[in-house]
Write a protein that binds this DNA or RNA. Structure first.
Lengths: 191, 191
DNA sequence: TGGATTTCTTAACTTAAGTGAACGTTTGTG
DNA sequence: CACAAACGTTCACTTAAGTTAAGAAATCCA
C-alpha cells in the first residue's frame, strides 16, 4: 500500500530510505467504506486526500439535489478548497467505493518540507502539473457538446462508467440523467 | 512595474533586498502590443507568463474558428500546458490589449529555487491556490446554465465585458455569439 | 427474503441553444 | 477618406437539453 505511494512519488523525485521512513512515520493511511462522507458543505477541514485505491467524488447539493462535479481515482489527490481558503467548504467529498487514501494536513506538509525540501519540490511539481491539466479539462468542457463530452469520457475513462452510477456521470458531464440516457440511445443507434 | 510584481509576491512570502535583486537581474519584463500572439498551436515553448497589466487570452482553432477559453488579467499567470508536458501546444496565447508581462522559463525558476528556496515555496503556494480555484471554476461551469454563467460574469468580472469583444466572451462562456446576444436581450427585458 | 429505495429509461412537452444567413455598425487600414 | 473586415444583432429554423412524470429494473438492507 505504501509502495503505491512511493512508486507514484518516484515519478517526480527520488526518495532516500530516510525520507521514506519520515513519510511512513506519519500515520496517513486510511480505509474508507463506500458512501463515507469525508467532507461536508459548511465544514472547515484541514485534510487533504490522495487516492491509492478506489474512488472519491466531490459533489454539491443544489436546489436539493446532488451535482457530482469530479471523480478522483488511483494516484489523484484532492486539496479541498476550504483547506486553501480557510472558508467553509462549498462541496462534499464522499467515497464512491471502498477506498484507500492518505489523509494529510498542511501542517504535516510544512513540517516535512522543513526536514526534506525535496517534498516541497514534489508538491510544487504535482500541483503545477494538476493545474495545467485542470485548465485543459475546463477548455475541453467549454468547447464540447454534451454528446462529445460523453464520447470522450467513453474513450478516456471507460472504467468510470463501470464504477460510478449513471446519474453521477450525468452531472459530471454537466447534464441531467435523462439527457445522458438519451445520448446513450442516440449513440447506440448510430453504431 | 517591478513593484507590481513584488507587491504580489509579498502576499505569499516576504523578500529580502538580495532576493529582489536576483529577480530583477533576470530580464523578464516584456511589453506586448494588442493582438500579439505569444504561443501558437503546434509550437513547443518554454515560456511561462505572468500578467502585470493588460490581458492575455488562450484560444483554440476548432473547425476553422476561434474558441476563446480563458482570460488572464492583472496578477494572473499562465504556465502553458506544453511547458509542462513537452508536447506541442494545443492552444494559442494572444494579447487582448497592450499588455505588460513577465516571461520566464522552468530553467530560470530552477536556478532561482536553488539559490532561494523561498521561491519554490512561492510557486508551490501559488499553483496550489490556482489549482483549487481552477477546480471551483470548473465545478461552477458544470453546474450552471449559460445564462447563469453570464450573470455571474457580469457580477464577478464586469471589467472583462468592457475589455473584451463579445464573441470572445461568448466562447469563454461556452456558447455562440448569437446565444450570448439573445441572453443579453432576454435579461435586459427582465429588468 | 421481501419491501423500500435507488437507478435508469422512456415519453410528452417546454425551453433554449445551435445554425445559417442577412444586415447595420463599428473598426482598422491602406 | 473610403473600403474592407470584423463585430454585434436579429430572424427563421433545427436540434437538443431541461422538466415533469411514470414505470421497470436493479440494489440495498433490515
Amino acid at each position: 500500500m505504501q509502495d503505491l505511494l512511493f512508486n507514484f512519488i518516484s515519478k517526480f523525485v527520488s526518495l532516500t530510505e530516510d525520507e521514506k521512513k519520515a513519510i511512513a512515520a506519519f500515520d496517513i493511511f486510511r480505509s474508507v467504506k463506500k458512501g463515507t462522507v469525508l467532507l461536508k458543505e459548511g465544514q472547515l477541514s484541514n485534510n487533504c486526500y490522495f487516492v491509492l485505491k478506489g474512488c472519491l467524488r466531490t459533489y454539491y447539493i443544489i436546489d436539493g439535489d446532488e451535482k457530482t462535479t469530479a471523480f478522483y481515482t488511483e494516484m489523484e489527490g484532492i486539496t479541498p478548497h476550504c483547506v486553501m481558503s480557510g472558508n467553509p467548504s462549498v462541496y462534499y467529498i464522499a467515497a464512491v467505493e471502498d477506498t484507500i487514501i492518505t489523509a494529510s494536513t498542511p501542517e504535516m506538509e510544512h513540517e516535512t518540507f522543513a526536514k526534506f525540501p525535496k517534498f516541497e519540490t514534489l508538491c510544487r511539481m504535482f500541483s503545477e502539473q494538476e493545474l495545467a491539466k485542470s485548465q485543459l479539462t475546463l477548455d475541453d468542457f467549454k468547447t464540447s457538446s454534451p454528446e462529445q463530452r460523453y464520447l470522450k469520457l467513453l474513450r478516456n475513462r471507460p472504467d468510470l462508467l463501470q464504477r460510478v452510477p449513471q446519474h453521477q456521470i450525468a452531472s459530471f458531464l454537466g447534464i441531467t440523467p435523462q439527457s445522458l440516457s438519451r445520448i446513450r440511445t442516440r449513440i447506440s443507434g448510430k453504431t
